[in-house]
């Protein structure tokens, strides 16, 4: 199939307040580039689904907010005339129709003639590897098969925008992994502008060209997966993507001093707490640069390719250290740790 031309999507001061007065989404400005996959990531109630529904046209933004598809202002256009494809967590397949009829539905509604319709349905089923299911009833399908049908149905009419609302959440872990790879392949081959909503950071990292981490109705940070992981803008974002250690410190005479902690530091110290990833801290190897942290091992888990240590620095939450598996550790051992200064993050910065 010819790749449908992606169009950019722009939200302009789009907010949403529900009838009972709760603010689901603060007025938000956002541009999604043509052909880009943007993932909205966040806990439940953060406003990610509301944003998706505003883009879809299922919900209207509050007065003053606008939604643009390319150069069209679609704010007042209902979903049935926006030409979007949508995939739901609950699949939402029509139970009274066969698999093939489900996939054909969008084409039938658009009055695509029978021969072309049949060709396109066959193509979609093949693309999603479900050709042999064409004449099955929906209740005869497994969850993974249902979501494949839902994807085929959503892209069959060649929508301008593809919207996925937690499409993998209802599936078990192994199937989720398989289907994630498949969705990724699909999105790359279609080059269609895609909005993907999830609370699963692994999905967001794997599928997103950019990720928008959402918190309490706002976009807390937006950027590539790499930017978000390496330069989280807040403790919330850092905690949502990957594991993060937090240690309380105070700047004192060229050092950051905390419980069990003494880090040479010559820059500014913009807060009372530092953050670092478990994989950035390592066991001190006895080289000339001094160890910066000392503590006692609370637990050590050998996980095959690495060992995860939980280390008590004397006060505050224990920190997690991801280290190579070669050496063995036991609870109660004292350890000395190194941490490159450039890997230190300041949540308040």
């Amino acid at each position: 199939m010819s790749a449908p031309d992606g169009i950019p999507i722009r939200l302009e001061r789009a907010g949403k307040t529900f009838d009972d007065g709760t603010r689901a989404l603060e007025p938000t400005d956002l541009t999604i580039e043509a052909g880009e996959t943007l993932v909205f990531l966040g806990p439940s109630g953060c406003g990610k689904t509301t944003t998706l529904r505003i883009v879809a046209g299922l919900d209207q933004p509050d007065a003053g907010g606008r939604v643009w598809f390319g150069s069209d202002d679609v704010t007042e256009v209902p979903i049935e005339r926006r030409n979007v494809g949508m995939v739901f967590q609950s699949y939402a397949l029509f139970p009274n129709m066969s698999v093939a009829d489900n996939v054909a539905y969008g084409l039938k509604v658009r009055r695509v003639d029978e021969a072309e319709r049949r060709g396109r349905v066959a193509q979609m089923l093949e693309m999603m590897h479900i050709t042999e299911l064409a004449h099955r009833r929906i209740d005869q399908l497994s969850g993974g098969q249902r979501q494949r049908v839902a994807l085929a149905r959503a892209i069959a009419p060649r929508p301008r925008v593809l919207l996925l609302d937690e499409p993998l959440t209802a599936l078990d872990a192994k199937l989720r992994e398989t289907l994630r790879v498949e969705i990724d392949r699909l999105l790359r081959s279609l080059a269609i502008t895609t909005v993907y909503v999830t609370h699963d950071q692994a999905e967001a990292m794997a599928l997103g060209d950019r990720i928008a981490v959402m918190q309490k109705g706002r976009i807390a940070q937006i950027g590539t997966p790499r930017e978000i992981y390496q330069r989280p803008s807040s403790a919330f974002v850092a905690g949502f993507i990957g594991a993060m250690n937090h240690v309380s410190v105070r700047a004192d005479n060229g050092y950051l001093i905390g419980s069990g902690t003494r880090i040479p530091w010559h820059g500014s110290a913009p807060g009372g707490q530092i953050m670092f990833r478990p994989e950035d801290v390592s066991i001190h190897d006895g080289s000339v640069s001094p160890a910066v942290m000392e503590g006692r091992i609370l637990s050590a888990f050998f996980l095959g390719d690495h060992t995860r240590l939980s280390v008590d620095l004397g006060a505050g939450d224990p920190i997690t250290v991801r280290t190579e598996a070669r050496c063995s550790f036991a609870a109660g051992d004292a350890v000395r740790l190194s941490l490159p200064a450039e890997r230190i993050l300041w949540p308040e910065a």
Partner: peptide, 27 residues
Amino acid sequence: LDPRLEEAARSLGARPWRVVADVIVPG
């Protein structure tokens, strides 16, 4: 009735009467 079914039909281009005929009445 699952409201998602109606939303799915609408997303595929079905106008209100079509949604009634294809989703609500069969349901």
